[in-house]
Design a protein around this nucleic acid. Sequence first.
DNA 1: GGCTGCGCTAAGCGCTCGCTCACCGTCGGC
DNA 2: GCCGACGGTGAGCGAGCGCTTAGCGCAGCC
Lengths: 207, 207
Amino acid sequence: MSTAEETTGGEVEPWEEVTPDAARRLLVAAVEAFAERGYHATTTRDIAGRAGMSPAALYIHYKTKEELLHRISRIGHDKALDILRSAAQREGTATERLADAVSSFVRWHAGRRTTARVVQYELDALGPEARAEIVALRRQVDAEVRGIVEDGVASGEFDVLDVQGTTLAVLSLCIDVARWFTVDGPRTPEEVGALYADLVLRMVGAR
Amino acid sequence: MSTAEETTGGEVEPWEEVTPDAARRLLVAAVEAFAERGYHATTTRDIAGRAGMSPAALYIHYKTKEELLHRISRIGHDKALDILRSAAQREGTATERLADAVSSFVRWHAGRRTTARVVQYELDALGPEARAEIVALRRQVDAEVRGIVEDGVASGEFDVLDVQGTTLAVLSLCIDVARWFTVDGPRTPEEVGALYADLVLRMVGAR
DNA sequence: GGCTGCGCTAAGCGCTCGCTCACCGTCGGC
DNA sequence: GCCGACGGTGAGCGAGCGCTTAGCGCAGCC
C-alpha cells in the first residue's frame, strides 16, 4: 500500500473522475477555498484565481457556484460510503469490521481533511433538492455502521444498550475529526485512526 | 431543578447579562440567524428584522457584525467553561466528575443548540485578535477535561493509554452534538447527556 | 490557407451587502 | 414649557458579489 493510500483510506488519485482537466482544477480550487473559508465566504473570483483562470471560466464548466458544491459533496459522500461499505462487507468478526470501518473512515477525514470539511459542514448551503439527495446518502452511511453494531450485538461480541444512539455517537466522533484535525498537529491520520478504533471498540463494549 | 435548568445545563435565563434590552434582542436574533444560516450567509438586515428593528439600529449597539459574533462567542465560551468547571471542582470520584461534566456539557450543547452551534462552528469567521482570545478559552476547556481524566488515571479508576488523545475525543464527541441534535429528534437533551456520559466512561475504561 | 468550433478572457450588468448619516420622537431636569 | 440627550428610522453610499456577453486565439479539417 502506498503512502497516498494510507492517508486517504484507499483513495489513490482524488477527483480523477472529474473531466476535463480545467473542470477538475476549478473543483480542486473550490474544495480548498470552501474548506478554508466556508462556502458563503468564498467568491467565484477566488476559486477561479486559485485555478489560474478568469472568473468567467467557471461558468463554462459549472452552471452556478452551488453546482460546484453539489458535485464536491456528491463525490465526497460517495467516497465516504465506499470506504464504510468496504469495511462492512469484508470477512471477519463484527469487532474486526467495526475497527476497520472506524480507522479507515477516520483516516479519510484526517488525511483528506479539506474535502471532508466541505462534505460534512457545508451541507446547509445546498438547495432543497441537492440537500435531499445528500441526506439520502448520509442515511446509507448511518445504516452501514448500524449494521455492524447490530451484528456485534447479535453475536454477543458487543454490549450496547442503545444501538441507534451509539451508532450516532460513533459516526459523530469520526465526522468531527474533520473539524479539529490539522497536518501541523502531533498525530498522523493513521495514529488517529488507530486511537479512534480502540475508543469505539470500548464504546460498544467489545470483549 | 426546573425544566429550564435541566435543558440548559444550569442556565436559567440566557443572555441576561446583555443590556440594554434592545442590544439583547439584537444579540438573540443574531444567535438564531447565525445558527440557522451561518455567519457569512446572515445579513445585518436579517438580524435587525428578527429583532423588530431597522438595519441601522444594529450599529447603535454594536460597531460591526463581527462584534456581535465576538460577544456571542465570548459569552457562550464562558458559559461552557463554567459548566465544565462546576463539574470538575465538585466533590466525588473522577468517574463521578467525568460523568457529571459530560452529561451537563452535552445537555448544554443539545438544549441550547442554537448558541452552541454559533460558539463551536463560527470560530473561523472571527478576526485574528478575537479568535486568539476565544482559542485561549478553548484551551482552558480542554484543560478541565484533561484534568479529570488524569485524576482518574492517577487513582486507578481509568485505563487510558493516550490521555491527550482521549481527552480530545471526549470533547469532540460532546461538541459535535451541536451539529446533529434537533428538537424534532427522538431524544431529549437529558437522554443524550446520560447516554454520552455512559459512552465516555466506557472510553476511559472506568471500572 | 481559410474556415469553423470551442475554451477562454475582458468588461461589465444588476443587485445586495455592510455600514453611514441626516433627521426625528420621547422623556427627564429645570 | 423648553431643551438636550439618546435611541431610533429612512434613505442611500461605495464596494463587491454572482453571473453574462461579446469577442478573441488557436487547434483541427478541408
